[in-house]
Design a protein around this nucleic acid. Sequence first.
DNA 1: GCAAGGTC
Length: 864
Amino acid sequence: MAPKVLMVAEKPSIALAIASVLSGGRMSSRRGSTEVHEFDGMFLGFPVHYKVTSVIGHVFSVDFPARFQDWNATNPLDLFDAPIVKTESTPKAHICRHLSQEARGCGHLVLWLDCDREGENICFEVIECTGFQSTAGRKVYRARFSSVTEKDILKAMNSLVEPNKNEAQAVDARQEIDLKVGVSFTRFQTSYFNGKYGNLDSRVISYGPCQTPTLGFCVRRHLQISTFKPEKYWTLHPYIIYKGYELKLDWQRHRLFDSDVTQMFRNFVKEDGFLKVIGISEKQVSKGRPSGLNTVNLLKVASSALGFGPQLAMQLAERLYTQGFISYPRTESTAYPASFDYKGTLGALVRNPVWGDYVQQLLSDGYHKPRSGTDAGDHPPITPMSSATEDVLGHDAWKLYQYICQHFLGTLSPDCKYTRIKIEFESGGESFNCVGQHVLVKGFTSIMPWLAVPEINMPQFTEGQKIDISRIEVDEGSTQPPDYLSESELISLMEENGIGTDASIPVHINNICERNYVQVQAGRRLVPTALGISLIRGYQLIDPDLCLPDIRSFIEQQIALVAKGQADHSLVVEHVIEQFKRKFIYFVKQIENMDALFEAEFSPLSESGRVLSKCGKCLRYMKHIPSQPSRLYCGTCEEIYYTPPKGTIKLYKELTCPLDNFELLIFSMRGPEGKSFPFCPYCYNNPPFEGIDLFGASKSIGSVKLWKGAGMPCFLCPHPTCQHSMISQGVCACPECDGTLVLDPVSAPRWRLYCNMCNCLVSLPEGAHRISTTRDHCPECDSTIIEVDFNKKTTPLKDGATLHVGCILCDELLYSLVEMKHGKSFSRNARHRGRGRGRGRRGYSGRGRGNKKQQDPRMSFRDF
DNA sequence: GCAAGGTC
């Protein structure tokens, strides 16, 4: 059997392209975590069997070990010296397992990751997953390619190299630095400010070496605007009427900030009464066609001309790409590869109803090659691949596609050429001028009309000629502050300062919006909020480095040393981390300077929120603060109790928790079918029983309390006698999961049961006065017996009786009135299969971590 | 609940 060669690309599309080229299209493809393409061929002069597959970006990402995940138990300062662990970025995709399986029996590994630092880093992630490094005799190769054309792929195959460990380690360094710096500052700021103020309206007060300088740009502009002092100015405009034109002339001095002096010049001109032509210049100007379109330029146009935010623009572009209408939309390059097939691409657009004629003309008159741009070695510029119409794409995608087509056709069109005539005049010792423009060749501006050069007609003048002034105007104006930063300007600033990448720039902008630091207003301009301004002004007071773009360049420059092999990876990390640690310590020490700004802007917890319920410790009323993170604040005990997020909270009939005396609250999730449940503020934050999968907690890391807002509502409480606990309110097992269906106590008149773990919902007899659980259990199936008090008018009972007691599964009447809302439907055919063991009285077993096997077989809707 | 970077 021929030896096997495994090849791995960064994304499925590249794997497909490589396999297609190397196999000449004769390959077999099968599905896996990612597709695998197989074929036979030659490798280094020997016949081999190829397998080509891919990862989906990074396989791993870095994080802190579990013991550093609890915000309350970890001092953020300790994070600088904490170990870091690599975990799979998308565990569900099982990429690591996939690579390890595919590598089995392969003698060679060829890495086709993108040719940048991140790609080099992913190379080593792949090597780790495949286990290639540990086995002698198996060789690892790196293919270096600048595009996925046949020529480039074959060239790369003939010049395989080794993966570059230094570049990969530079990325490791960046990951560790970004993680430690970002997370430590974020946790500290969040805990500090959310523990003091009630109306910050952001769950997380985040800090990051990219997002914070991004915010810094927006706030810098805001400060320019708010400190702007307008100044009055005056300007002089003589008018002439000549050969049927009335011309307004511009003053060479443009404007003066002194009214008297301007008047003086006006008088000089007025005394002369005429203008003398002292110069006529005419020159040909060429306005160059664009070079290829890259991601950042697409995002800028999308924001400024189409009104699409970067996130939306990328989503639309992504869709156009996967549907085959445009080429890969994430690229830095503005230069096309020498081999690019312009003719073929134009051919694909020639039938388009909107610009088909223009394409035809380019094909017949001959097109120009695009103006040379920069080749970043990643992907060709964003190019239309096939023709589409608005009907097919929908309005937004069409707008973006249309621009991509117009831009592409523009790159192949002639330059725009026009003549510019400038006439200079003199009067009273002052100089004036006017300018005319005449377009000779529209060129690319006919397909990109918004860039067209306006035609400005001008009569013929002769030098030395004198023309009477018809009138003189003195215009008064005042200097204007700049406008708020447009998103497009922000993208440019980020690009210039090396903040983020083409793929991450939209994410950073989105971040500062989501955190409520800036708001996108009319014309996609970014206006910072009080929170955003306070943060940046705070950094400026304490340590301006923290919000300057240089912070990113500093990190980049440090890790570049690692990439070039000029410095040791761990020494660089250590050095950079040490510096940030010092900055962190100083920041913590000086936080009161930032806090002074917060004090002026925000309300302390004690003044926030509305009085809601009684604290079980001091028996005084606590206040509910509904802004994120939603919480209760006891001013006497100075304690915060987080509440479930995203819903409304009310007092629950002044009932109290038997464990701690806190007044119970009812939380209602949003939406018409949102469930409601009681909870005790104290138990919710401090679950009195071990091993409970908290409501709202991340399931993947067990029941550790991971974030504010996760907690234990009564429906998870195993208290044996409290009338609100799962034990009392639970009716039967959930048909969908391991949970329990509990009675929604405030769902009248549309009574219902919901699952305490999943979304399963069961409706009970509608319109009943009251439905409640009893202490009795069904002898058949052990479900909790419920008591229904029907409405007199609509009771289904004989003789107008209203009270009925029974099991919702075994009682014929009740069973006929319940209905599954969310979840599988059920029938009662095999109802008595198995032995019913309703969960009601069985105590708290089998719901904790890893206990599932101990569960008794039990009756539920599932068994029907 | 935290960063930034890949990609879907």
